[in-house]
Design a protein around this nucleic acid. Structure first.
Length: 892
DNA sequence: GCTTTCACG
DNA sequence: ACGTACGTGAAAGCC
């Protein structure tokens, strides 16, 4: 049996250097609680993970330089002379790089009088003899001289995670030389950083030319007479000794007397406990999460302090009485089996009062007055995780939750909108609290998901959740305060959760009969179009498969390929539109796609989620997901019901009021994002346009097309100007704009330049927000919602550009989201105060949708715009437009 | 589970 | 030169 022995040799100093300078810009962000810089350790660790994954080594050794002086200094006193001193921020990290290696269970080694290179060279040679497959990782190209058929030299690129792999073939392709000739090249060229000179005036190009001709330095000097008289020849002759000396310096030793053998470098993986401790010492939170996730199938590894709790049953529940005066607050958790809290079985609860914990599987017990009081009494503060979910769940039991104080999920989201885990355990870890397991660890996942039968196991998990809520309240509220986000939480998000819960519980009525009618109509049309397409294609295939469609269009019919995806041909609408007219099949495919989408997503999809008992859909608004602060809507998504195309728009006819004689009423903010932009950018021109009630897109068109009168604006100009306005909001790029409205990039660039000339305040805002994001690491909305943008300093152009556009867009999109949230809270309050029967049912980002008895319509027409207008006071007015009708379709 | 496509603001 | 519009969710195919 032949073993697959894989040896990994790492040049520790060189990689640590690379890591340090790769993350140099973020130096001050990588500081642990003891003030130690950790960027090089971090980079080193990232590199290790990457290389382990790709190499999967059986043996590992990391070599370090032992000191400044080596045998090379005896040969050449100035070797590595004049080198700048290693920055202390880096040198202080070397002991920790070694500690990291210990935690990884990796051998490291250094040897007096030799460099890391020589250790690596020697072991690589031994590896060669013992039939190892070897990978050398370094930041130093000199080591490419070690490349052989069985030894690859991976040289780190700009960062440390990307490497360039030098096999003999790759060396040949890159330099036209063999690995051994690298030594000759170094001899001729010299090395600035190692401070040896080489032959005067000979650089890489010349050296390669010479070596191609003469093979080696020895070869050059044996045949030196063949060279024509030239300056170069003179230099070569003059520096002959230097050349041989430098070659000797450049040659990595492969015969160093080591005290380690390859058998000492066997690698058996990392040591979990050491890793945890080390990451804690370094404050590497993300890595801690990762390793705890990796070991989650072994919950026994995690030792959590036991909580004493009382299991509640029908028989003992009445023994406990909680004096409302004495109860300062209660942390409460309601467990359900499944995501959809409108229907998920209620399978348990737990809470604490003071130091006492209680738990039960029987949620009916909550109806007992002594427990009910804890949740319904206005003098008792309730702390929980996901208030909206809990509110809806309790509502199913007829319990009406009041006075939520702390919502762990919501607060955590506000502190960092990119931390949007829904699992209490995961989320707690992000706040350094680890005394609770993730649901997956206790309940399992997929088909095997189930509540533990063992009471002790189940109840302690529930009680741990309660304790987590209790423990995290004070520190997280403090963080909110530091960020000045208390108002955002208390005035907006917390009350909004209840408003959303009420909207979800109400639901919106669906005319299922209408949907089914439309369904059978579409079904026929789909099968007709399908037949035509099969005929035109000359065969049957699965039209829903882009892969099969691609074969038909681009291979069989030989239509030109416009765009490719990762996996094959793109058949997206933008592509098909370009193919239009080249074959009749294209139009039919477009039509098919359009109708099939309506059928599957909106007709069948909607029918699937309509509740039979009330013929309603009860969406769930995700309040803690988007990174900008918008809501999203699931099960079903009611925020993407068709409207742009006539056929899809008909779906809206199926959304009707719950009672006959009622109406659907809708109000939307007109151009709220551009108004927000006008406000936060303080751009005088844009503000003026809005203050005067101008058509902003026409106004923009006049300006960028340099027209004198609004009458000269054609509809096409307005359309293009509108696209420019949208582009601005998204963080414009000429490419994106060009793509969107089908003009050249040059034209797009001109448009943008003109735009910024007309609206210089906008330009200034865009520049400032990016700089501010770079300095602070985050951007904020009007109401201090925060989004962190770690990528804003990335060295990768694409990643950085994306972060920059995000920096421009998030305050705009996010502030608009803030505003409508305020309006929703005030609106719900208003409906209650005025004792209206009208119900607020849906929110679609800039639009609120109600149902109401006809007689209340005039009231809504007045009140809704008023409330929406007054949600915030900007430098310019907001504008709200309303309409109504007997279905959602008609309310437009 | 991932990819592609397409619906919305 | 690089190669992108911002934010979402659902269905279907495919492995």
């Amino acid at each position: 049996m032949k073993e697959n022995k894989k040896l990994l040799l790492i040049d520790g100093n060189s990689v640590a250097f690379r890591a340090f300078f790769a993350l140099h810009q973020s130096l001050e962000r990588f500081v642990n609680h003891n003030g130690l810089h950790t960027n090089a350790v971090y980079g080193f660790k990232t590199m290790l993970d990457n290389i382990i994954e790709s190499v999967n080594p059986t043996h590992v050794l990391v070599a370090f330089d032992a000191g400044r002086k080596t045998f090379r200094n005896e040969k050449y006193a100035d070797y590595k002379g004049g080198r700048a001193k290693t920055p202390t921020e880096l040198s202080e990290q070397f002991p920790y790089v070694k500690k990291l290696l210990e935690a990884y269970g990796m051998k490291y080694y250094e040897l007096q009088n030799y460099e890391a290179d020589d250790i690596i060279g020697t072991l690589a040679k031994q590896g060669e003899e013992q039939d190892f497959e070897t990978t050398i990782v370094t930041g130093d190209r000199d080591l490419t001289q070690l490349a052989t058929e069985k030894t690859t030299v991976a040289v780190t690129q700009k960062g440390v995670t990307e490497v360039e792999r030098y096999t003999p073939k790759h060396v040949e392709a890159k330099y036209g030389l063999s690995p051994a000739q690298i030594i000759d090249m170094k001899g001729l060229v010299g090395d600035n950083s190692d401070n040896y000179p080489g032959v005067a005036k000979v650089g890489e190009k010349t050296a390669i030319k010479l070596l191609k001709q003469f093979k080696s330095i020895e070869g050059i000097y044996e045949n030196i007479d063949e060279l024509k008289k030239s300056k170069m020849k003179e230099h070569l002759i003059e520096d002959k000794e230097i050349a041989f000396m430098c070659k000797d310096l450049a040659r990595i030793r492969c015969d160093v007397p080591l005290e380690v053998e390859l058998t000492d470098t066997v690698w058996n993986g990392s040591e979990h406990q050491k890793l945890v401790e080390f990451f804690q010492e370094m404050d590497f939170k993300r890595f801690l999460e990762k390793i705890s996730a990796a070991t989650q199938d072994d919950p026994a590894q995690k030792i959590i302090e036991d909580i004493k709790f009382t299991a509640l049953t029908k028989d003992n529940v009445n023994q406990f009485n909680f004096d409302a005066e004495a109860v300062e607050g209660v942390s409460f958790y309601l467990e359900m089996m499944g995501d959809n809290y409108h229907t998920a079985p209620l399978v348990g609860f737990a809470f604490n009062v003071g130091t006492k914990y209680f738990a039960s599987r029987d949620t009916e017990l909550l109806k007992y007055p002594n427990l009910r009081k804890l949740l319904e009494n206005e003098n008792i503060d309730v702390d929980l995780f996901d208030g909206k979910r809990t509110f809806v769940g309790l509502n199913r039991l007829g319990i009406h939750l009041t006075d939520i104080r702390f919502d762990l999920l919501l607060v955590s989201y506000l502190l960092d909108t990119s931390d949007n885990s829904n699992d209490l355990g995961k989320l707690a870890q992000q706040h350094d609290y680890t005394e609770v397991l993730e649901d997956e660890q206790v309940y399992g996942k997929g088909a095997k998901i189930k509540i533990p039968e063992n009471d002790a196991e189940y109840y302690s998990h529930l009680c741990n959740k309660v304790r987590t809520i209790k423990k995290l309240r004070t520190p997280l509220m403090k963080k909110l305060e530091t960020n000045k986000q208390e108002e955002l939480y208390i005035k907006i998000e917390r009350p909004l959760a209840i408003v959303l819960a009420e909207m979800e519980i109400d639901g919106i009525t669906v005319d299922t009969q209408r949907l089914e009618e439309m369904g059978s109509e579409f079904k026929e049309r789909i099968s007709e179009i399908k037949q035509t397409i099969y005929q035109e294609a000359g065969e049957k295939f699965n039209l829903n498969s882009p892969k099969q469609l691609g074969v038909i269009l681009f291979e069989k019919m030989k239509l030109p390929v416009i765009k490719k995806t990762k996996t094959g041909y793109s058949t997206a609408v933008s592509v098909l539109e370009k193919l239009r007219g080249m074959a009749p099949i294209i139009d039919n495919i477009l039509k098919y796609r359009q109708i099939a989408k309506i059928q599957s997503t909106y007709i069948e999809g909607l029918l699937k989620v309509t509740f039979e008992k009330d013929s309603k859909v009860h969406t769930r608004y995700t309040q803690t997901l988007t990174s900008t602060g918008r809501l999203s809507s699931v099960d079903p998504n009611l925020q993407n019901i068709p409207i742009r195309l006539a056929e899809g728009k008909k779906i809206r006819q199926a959304f009707i009021p719950q009672k006959t004689g009622w109406q659907i009423f809708s109000s939307d903010y007109s151009q709220i994002e551009l108004r927000v932009l006008a406000h936060i950018s303080h751009d005088a021109n844009m503000q003026k346009a809005f203050a005067e009630g101008q058509d902003i897109h026409a106004n923009t068109a006049m300006n960028i097309f340099e027209l004198d009168s609004p009458a000269d604006v054609t509809s096409n100009m307005r359309r293009q100007a509108k696209a420019v306005n949208f582009g601005i909001v998204y963080g414009i790029s000429d490419y994106g704009l060009a793509q969107n409205i089908g003009i050249t990039r040059k034209q797009a660039k001109l448009f943008i330049e003109k735009y910024f000339k007309i609206f210089p305040g906008v330009k200034e805002y865009m520049e400032k927000i990016v700089i501010s994001a770079r300095e602070k690491g985050y951007v904020e909305t009007l109401f201090k919602r925060r989004r962190y943008l770690p990528d804003i300093s990335s060295r990768n152009y694409n990643i950085r550009s994306f972060a920059e556009r995000t920096a421009m867009n998030t305050p705009i999109q996010g502030s608009a989201a803030d505003i409508i949230k305020v309006a929703m809270i005030n609106m719900q309050k208003m409906l209650k105060e005025k004792k209206l029967e009208a119900r607020m049912l849906l929110q679609v980002h800039d639009e609120l949708i109600f149902e109401a008895p006809s007689k209340e319509i005039p009231i809504l027409e007045e009140v809704v715009p008023q409330v929406m207008d007054a949600a915030v006071s900007l430098d310019i007015p907001l504008k709200v437009e309303s309409s109504y009708g007997k279905t959602w379709f008609d309310a437009k």
